[in-house]
Design a protein around this nucleic acid. Structure first.
Length: 89
DNA sequence: CGTATGACGTGCA
DNA sequence: GTGCACGCCATAC
């Protein structure tokens, strides 16, 4: 797990704790992580994140858009449709 | 150590 | 409701 900063570790913790069938926005994750002012960094951390243990696909934008996914946005949409049971857009 | 980037968010036209 | 621009934080180079 290497040397993650408290920020990243916290973000991973929160994202990993997201219950199935639910999703959080980047800003919400940052807020839950304890860094509500660094919602920007949340997306960056997840982007560079290579940990498959982190359901980063459950984190979407506040715009209601899916956002992105380092494994493929298409994959993220599929996961959201299957796990979060959400509608397209 | 300094600069640039990015899976964002909000504001304004 | 949609599009463009700016601001923001942390990380990577």
């Amino acid at each position: 797990m290497k040397h993650l900063t408290g920020f990243q570790r916290k973000v991973f913790e929160v994202v990993q704790k997201i219950p199935k069938g639910s999703f959080l926005t980047y800003k919400k994750v940052a807020e839950e992580a304890g860094f509500p002012w660094a919602w920007r960094a949340v997306g960056n951390v997840l982007n560079k994140n290579k940990n498959p243990k982190i359901p980063c696909h459950r984190v979407i934008r506040s715009n209601g858009k899916i956002g992105g996914y380092n494994k493929g946005v298409k994959k993220k949409m599929s996961l959201l449709l299957e796990e979060n049971v959400v509608t397209k857009r």
